[in-house]
C-alpha cells in the first residue's frame, strides 16, 4: 500500500526512540496492543515536579503507520501537562499523518498508549 509523506518521514526518521527505567517514580509507562494483533506500542513519559511532561520515548512493533503514530505522539506530548496529553485524540494524529481508514486503529493504539502512560504515572505517584 502507498504511504503518506508524513508517515514515511516518521518511519524513516523516528523521533524519540528509546527506553526509560520503568521503576523510576517520575516515569510513566504505557504498553498497549498485542503481538497477536501485529502491533505493540510502548510509550514512556518523564514528568517533572510541575506535572509537565519534559521528555517522552517510544518503541513500537507494528506497521509503518503504528510506528509513525507513536513517533508523532512523543513529539506532541513534550511540554504538555498530563491532562493536556490525555486530551490528545486519535483523530488528530490520524489527520496529521493522513492515515487511510484501514490504519485508523494505529492512531487509536497511540491514544491508548498515552492514556496508559499517564495513568501509570498517576498510580505510582498517588
Amino acid at each position: 500500500m502507498a504511504y503518506g509523506e508524513k508517515v514515511l518521514d516518521h518511519y524513516e526518521n523516528p523521533r524519540n526512540v528509546g527506553k526509560f527505567d520503568q521503576s523510576e517514580s517520575n516515569i510513566g509507562t504505557g504498553m498497549v496492543g498485542a503481538p497477536a494483533c501485529g502491533d505493540v506500542m510502548r510509550l514512556q513519559i518523564k514528568v517533572n515536579d510541575d506535572g509537565v511532561i519534559e521528555d517522552a520515548v517510544f518503541k513500537t512493533y507494528g506497521c509503518g503507520s503504528a510506528i509513525a503514530s507513536s513517533s508523532l505522539l512523543t513529539e506532541w506530548v513534550k511540554g504538555k501537562t498530563l491532562d493536556e496529553a490525555k486530551a490528545i485524540k486519535n483523530t488528530e494524529l490520524a489527520e496529521e499523518l493522513a492515515l487511510p481508514p484501514v490504519k485508523i486503529h494505529c492512531s487509536v493504539l497511540a491514544e491508548d498508549a498515552i492514556n496508559a502512560a499517564v495513568e501509570d504515572y498517576r498510580k505510582k505517584n498517588a
Binding site: 504498553m31 505493540v40 512493533y61
Partner: peptide, 15 residues
C-alpha cells in the same frame, strides 16, 4: 531497535 518485543526478548522476559 524500534521493537519493544525485541527489548523484552533481550531482557529475558517471556512474551
Amino acid at each position: 531497535d524500534l521493537s519493544p518485543l525485541w527489548d523484552m526478548f533481550k531482557d529475558g522476559i517471556d512474551i
